[in-house]
Design a protein around this nucleic acid. Structure first.
Lengths: 110, 110
DNA sequence: AAATTATATCGTAATATTGCGATATATCTA
DNA sequence: TAGATATATCGCAATATTACGATATAATTT
């Protein structure tokens, strides 16, 4: 057991879940919020900001990058990460659809 | 290791992360979407709908309930779960804040 | 009251995630 | 080119999550 039955759900459901999963760790929320405080992008001054080692920060960045929540460009001998507004907009739409769906239920019960 | 350093992040960051974490599993996305297809609330016809056992479905419902994404009321000898529009609206605000934050960066770089 | 139905919880096995030190890779600087 | 700097990846130990059968709880029906 312990193996998520991804094959049994739709691609859409798995895709949505993996984006939310990427947002589901405080370090990754902290990374997103740190990027927002910077006018330009970040490099690994994150390592100085977060209570985590360089290896761990790099791992979290990778997860955010894999989920396309952030994107990065090479900037000399360091990497420059930015938030991806397109993906955040998609997430917003998912949640909005859910809210609209609730409102359309003409007989709410709880 | 493997112990998330929650104490090192802000309450806000931990709270946001735990809501997203609750959304970060395809079964829980499927549960949310199933509730949306029903005019009234659900009980455990979910067990017939999802490829998971009753125990596992109940566990996922508990996580959604703990995160306040759904709320339930007793309905005879079964439980009736509904989505919580307030919480979904909060999630929408979090994402919107991030999007606004990006837009206010006058020198985007990626 | 006994059987049925609906749901929750316990215990357990398996997989996944988190975190870090060590090491690899790649660019920049002297 | 050698050393410094920035980042990624490997390998491992520890904790967390997922899933399920068995069992508990509680209301409903017969």
């Amino acid at each position: 057991m312990g193996l998520t039955k991804s094959a049994q759900f739709t691609d859409q459901q798995n895709k949505k879940a993996s984006v939310f999963k990427a947002l589901g760790h405080p370090a990754r929320i902290a990374i997103i919020e740190y990027i927002l405080t910077q006018k330009t992008c970040i490099c690994n001054d994150l390592v100085g900001t977060l209570p985590l080692s360089q290896a761990t920060v790099s791992q979290h960045l990778k997860e955010l990058k894999d989920a396309k929540i952030i994107k990065g460009t090479i900037e000399g001998n360091s990497l420059c990460y930015c938030l991806n507004p397109e993906l955040l907009t998609e997430i917003k739409f998912i949640i909005e659809q859910y809210i609209v769906g609730i409102e359309q239920n003409d007989s709410p019960c709880c």
